[in-house]
């Protein structure tokens, strides 16, 4: 589904990703862990097409297509969804209109008719339940005045509405209390499917108690330096990243 090969990316001339390789097959959940500054969020941003990051080398193929050649909205239409670490506030634009625009543009890109109001509202009603999102929030401006937990739940709600092929969760668990974390994780779990994969970027093992990954990768200094099962995450939680750093002292 997603194939990242030898990816190098930099921001303001500073190289952050230094040859990252990652293979994600349909239905798999990959957790990306690593110390601060290792390049986790950069990976998420580069996959979504943020222009602040420059790809200097390597390739990314998504469902057989060159992802790097696509604009952010084309990537979205192709099925890439990024749950932002810091969801953006858009004053005056209601969540519901925002989503309707997003859905209809996607349908248009796929040659489909716009969604009917009835069908749309039905969808909103069902899927907002997935993350226990208050109905009132769907009528409010996008992320404006939302608490941290509400913003994150809103991200997962949007993911449920947009039905992506690949969901990238960028530190979605950061700053959440345990209840909010459980709600968010449950939402994600309900969205797991044979043809839908996830890349879960996190700093804490805690999230992986709820979203059980198939693979855990350790990102360090712009590269994946270790890959294992969920037990790797537990080891990281217990022992921290020092042992990884020692194993990877720059030669």
């Amino acid at each position: 589904m997603l194939s990242v090969k030898n990816l190098h990316a930099s921001v303001d001339g500073k190289e952050i990703l230094k040859g990252l390789t990652l293979e994600v097959k349909p239905g798999e959940v990959h957790a990306i862990m690593g110390p601060n500054g290792s390049g986790k969020s950069t990976l998420a941003a580069v996959l979504a097409g943020n222009e602040d990051f420059e790809v200097t080398e390597g390739s990314v193929t998504f469902l057989g297509k060159d992802l790097l050649e696509m604009n952010p909205d084309e990537r979205s239409h192709a099925g890439v969804f990024l749950a932002f670490q810091y969801p953006v506030e858009i004053p005056g634009v209601s969540n519901i209109n925002f989503l309707k625009a997003a859905i209809n543009e996607r349908r248009e890109a796929h040659g489909q008719d716009p969604i009917s109001a009835k069908e749309f509202l039905q969808m909103v009603k069902e899927r907002s339940k997935l993350v226990e999102l208050d109905n009132k929030l769907t009528g409010r401006s996008v992320n404006e005045g939302f608490s941290g937990g509400e913003k994150k739940r809103n991200e997962i709600f949007q993911m449920a509405m947009l039905e992506p092929k690949l969901g990238i969760l960028d530190e979605t668990d950061s700053g959440l209390d345990i209840d909010a974390l459980r709600i968010v994780a449950n939402g994600v779990n309900k969205l797991r499917a044979a043809d839908r994969s996830f890349v879960v970027v996190t700093h804490y093992q805690r999230l992986l108690d709820y979203i059980i990954p198939d693979f855990v990768h350790v990102l360090f200094d712009g590269r994946i330096v270790k890959t294992g099962g969920k037990e790797l995450a537990l080891k990281l939680e217990e022992q921290g990243y020092d042992w990884i750093k020692q194993e990877n002292v720059p030669a």
């Binding site: 097409g49 604009n71 952010p72 990537r75 979205s76 997003a102 543009e105 947009l162």
Partner: peptide, 12 residues
């Protein structure tokens, strides 16, 4: 950042 957020959601 607002525009990028919209783009990511598939809005041109």
């Amino acid at each position: 950042d607002q525009i990028f957020y919209c783009l990511q959601r598939g809005i041109s």
